[in-house]
Design a protein around this nucleic acid. Structure first.
Lengths: 246, 246
DNA sequence: TAATGTAATTGTAAATTTTACAAAAAGTAT
DNA sequence: ATACTTTTTGTAAAATTTACAATTACATTA
């Protein structure tokens, strides 16, 4: 009995699936990146136009096969960079999609990763087999390649959940920002409106925004104080199990 | 230019990874099941003792390779059944683990699935290459095969999050249950204590537990009313974006 | 049968938070 | 100086949370 035979996986009761172990090692997996862009109250999604079969010319999420010698998280970052020239953006895993026929060229399961960035601070440049890149308003997305439509929908749900439990939003605003900008960000991401006075009262109780001595300039009205995000304070609170509950 | 060449994935800038497309299709993927069992204030985890290499004789999460012609979700259910004889338990995806060297026999990424069941209502029977099955107290788990220790830790965190946002707990209690039993369940899962009076006041506002006309019998104290879970009501509230916030 | 023990259930008052606004403040533009 | 705009603070009523205390309903024991 060989080493390989020993590792033969479980067989279904009717032996329907009794296939040699080698046949299991004929799959591939890919990463698809759901990159949301926020700017001044508008949420967009980053797409590429595919310059390679299958689904050539279709719009799609930036994604590609993972190298056999590459860690999953590493691959996600690398692939995003390879196709869109976006680097240094932390992305996090969301969900894995594994329907048998989701990919026309063979068995490929795909792991979706997600990030939220400031639309104008990122400069996506199509590279490799990506023909072009474009930000599409979240409310007006074309038909996508593969099952990317489904992946995007899951991504939207995951984004809203993460907004309330992680500081995924913290790199979207500039170093110093007004509370109004902060509120607009949350109103956009959560698709809700908040009372201005009450919103900031809740925030001040949360302690993780610290007021600086600087103020807004060049506005034709009372200038706003500028705040900054205190990650340490946030983590303290998060550890105690708090969630945004607006 | 062949069809395959066309689909060649993105190349890294330095061509380090320029390998033929076929080499991508040499991976496998597996499912590992994190099955939590609850009974009378005790949380346990279901493990199997492996009867096959690698990690023969090690305790491990029930898991195995996915067939190339099998949907991911289908595989999860099938594998759990094959190894532990547990069927009809809904399990949900949690996270995918994809470090290059996590599996000694080749590149295998694994997708973790999770469920919560009533320990005594499930009768796990080792089957196939599983030597035996056992419930281990969550606080006393042996060293596990592969990276299953890490997967279990992630599973614990995911369980707590899900308890607050989904009714993953709803099949754990009997059809009719006391509010005290309900409270004990949540205290166990969230590892917190609650004030009895206040806990049930919050519950009554949530509306998804309906009081039946029956009461507890054979208890040497005032008998408790029995309640049942109203899934429809729960879903209504969940749709409006509510979370348990005890 | 009455008293006792136990846990379920309801009650309550003080403290806190939420809500829906209103008023005041601090700048530019006219 | 006045108007305008948005920030910032204030406030009173309503609702909720909190920390207990009191009451209730059963079985068991005296």
């Amino acid at each position: 009995m060989t080493e390989i035979k020993k590792y033969q996986p479980a067989l279904a009761k009717d032996d329907l699936y009794a296939i040699p172990i080698d046949d299991f090692f004929k799959s591939a997996f890919s990463v698809d990146c759901v990159i949301f862009g926020y700017h001044e109250g508008e949420l967009k999604i980053l797409l590429i136009q595919r310059g390679a079969a299958p689904f050539e010319n279709f719009w799609a999420l930036p994604g590609d096969l993972v190298y056999p010698t590459e860690d999953l998280d590493t691959a996600a970052t690398r692939i995003l960079g390879d196709l869109t020239s976006i680097n240094d953006v932390p992305i996090c895993q969301v969900h894995t999609f594994g329907k048998v026929n989701r990919h026309p060229l063979g068995r490929v399961i795909t792991i979706a990763y997600l990030a939220l960035v400031e639309t104008t601070e990122i400069n996506p440049i199509a590279a490799n087999w990506a023909k072009r890149t474009a930000w599409h308003p979240i409310s007006d997305v074309p038909k996508l390649a593969f099952d990317h439509g489904e992946i995007l929908e899951e991504g939207k749900i995951a984004l809203q959940k993460m907004v309330m439990t992680e500081h995924i939003w913290s790199k979207v605003l500039p170093e110093k920002f007004t509370l109004t900008a902060f509120q607009e960000l949350f109103e956009t991401l959560l698709d809700k409106k908040f009372d201005k006075g009450n919103f900031r009262k809740k925030l001040s109780k949360m302690k993780f925004l610290t007021k600086s001595k600087e103020a807004q300039t060049n506005v034709s009205h009372r200038p706003s104080a500028l705040y900054s995000f205190d990650e340490k304070k946030y983590d303290e609170m998060a550890k105690k199990g708090f969630v945004f509950d607006f």
